[in-house]
Design a protein around this nucleic acid. Structure first.
Lengths: 253, 253
DNA sequence: AATCATAGTGTATTGTTGACACAAGAGTAA
DNA sequence: TTACTCTTGTGTCAACAATACACTATGATT
């Protein structure tokens, strides 16, 4: 929680630079050690958790704002970002309203305004991310999808909607380029799919189908040093991958 | 175009009642005589065309605002509505900015603000609609998708994005309940799909697949009076239809 | 050398999709 | 009445995709 003075300064700055009534919230997915992770912020106030988010500069394109916000939290540029929904329930920031309403008069109080928030989800390579808290938060951390805290505001809904969208997208678009390291094995990629879908898949059928999409290149040398048979390494064929992204996989009419 | 006085009155009212910087634009699809139609507004200014749209009351849920706007244009309540994208290019209302900037000083001038617009598409039964122009428009008319005028602002992009979304949706959701009359024949439904997809489909395969979804009920009596073999009538099985809406059709993992 | 865990590959079965042909009903014109 | 035409209803076959499942290969461990 900010002091009154800090709050006033923040609000002055916000009113000066940001579009009112509009915010952006981001669901950043990463994949590590066979687990799907989400980047979350733990506030300085004990036990308060949010998704990373922020506001849009007055003349800034939406996607650029989302990129800027994510760069601040992750250190990454050029993130795979997908707008997926606008959340605009008039009551969605009630908690903020209660929390901040006594600290500043309503006209000056940025946080007692109504906000529509534009939801983006991002897919990133876990290892590239350098989680960085913002001014309100004590920590920015990766959180396992199976071990989520209770979120403030409607951020649980935002996360769920993002995940649903991601799962749907899996059916007609390639995925993984942004979540896997450059080189990976087929079992690793399968694990990603299984994790997103929360469902076991058949090894052989997965491989056949995946290869059928024609977006993978098998590399020369298998991975060494493992305790078992050395698996082949693959990388995405970026040309075909991008084509599949825009054209989508089959399915349908 | 409004007079300066009318504009000032409109802006005063807008500032008083609406959330600034946010608008809603709607792509209303209807189906009539084998053609997919879109509801458009023809302005009083010669040759200016827009999609129906409006603003959001300060404490109004987004979807309610979209419903309200559409009720004013169509007379319909309880429309099938789907939010599909937010358009927020800072330059998107440049034309409005040019058009209105000399009429009122910027602080009072609602239309020279930047607006993000939330795109909704709607599917409606053509015959139920009573197209009604708004205060800025001379006519509200159904326009054939193959015969679209040049739109102002980014409304051509909004329409295209809506159509792309609709086509995508066709692959994993049922559609038609909101576009067809209560009772219809299989060839009529097929025509709807063909029109949306802009592609011929095989009669027999279409029927097999459609029935396979289990969302149709065949009615007792075939349609009479036609000049040929009387086709069966179908209606949607609303229970299964709704289930399919939320769960989606198969396809995928 | 035997064992274990994991990786690579093939095949038989079943289900789905796409292409296609013929029969049936209803009006029309000789 | 009959032949014709238009449209609808239905069935089948072949190609392809998805599923289930089993064996072989490799490298580390004992």
């Amino acid at each position: 929680m900010l002091t009154k003075k800090e709050l006033a300064a923040y609000c002055d700055n916000a009113r000066e630079n940001y579009l009112p009534h509009i915010s952006i919230d981001c669901v950043v997915f990463g994949f590590h050690e066979g687990q799907l992770k989400v980047l979350i912020l733990k506030m300085k106030n004990e036990g308060e958790y949010y998704l990373p988010g922020g506001f849009m500069l007055k003349r800034e394109p939406i996607e650029m704002a989302a990129n800027r916000i994510l760069k601040e939290r992750t250190g990454l540029d050029e993130i795979f970002l997908q707008q997926f929904h606008v959340f605009g329930d008039p009551e969605r920031s009630k908690e903020h309203f209660e929390m901040y309403k006594d600290m500043l008069p309503a006209e000056e109080n940025w946080f007692t305004n109504r906000f529509l928030t534009i939801g983006y989800y991002a897919l990133v390579d876990f290892c590239d991310v350098n989680p960085t808290p913002d001014q309100f938060s004590a920590e920015c951390i990766w959180c396992d999808l199976n071990d989520l805290p209770e979120f403030k505001l409607d951020h649980a809904l935002i996360l769920k909607t993002a995940l649903d969208t991601l799962r749907l997208q899996l059916n007609y678009q390639p995925i993984g380029y942004n979540l896997m390291p450059k080189e990976f094995t087929m079992p690793e990629l399968q694990k990603l799919y299984e994790t997103i879908l929360d469902k076991k898949l058949d090894r052989r059928n997965f491989q056949r189908r995946m290869l059928g999409f024609g977006i993978l290149s098998r590399l020369e040398s298998p991975r060494k040093g493992g305790a078992h048979k050395a698996p082949y390494l693959y990388s995405f064929d970026l040309k075909n991958y991008k084509a599949a992204l825009t054209e989508g996989f089959k399915g349908g009419w």
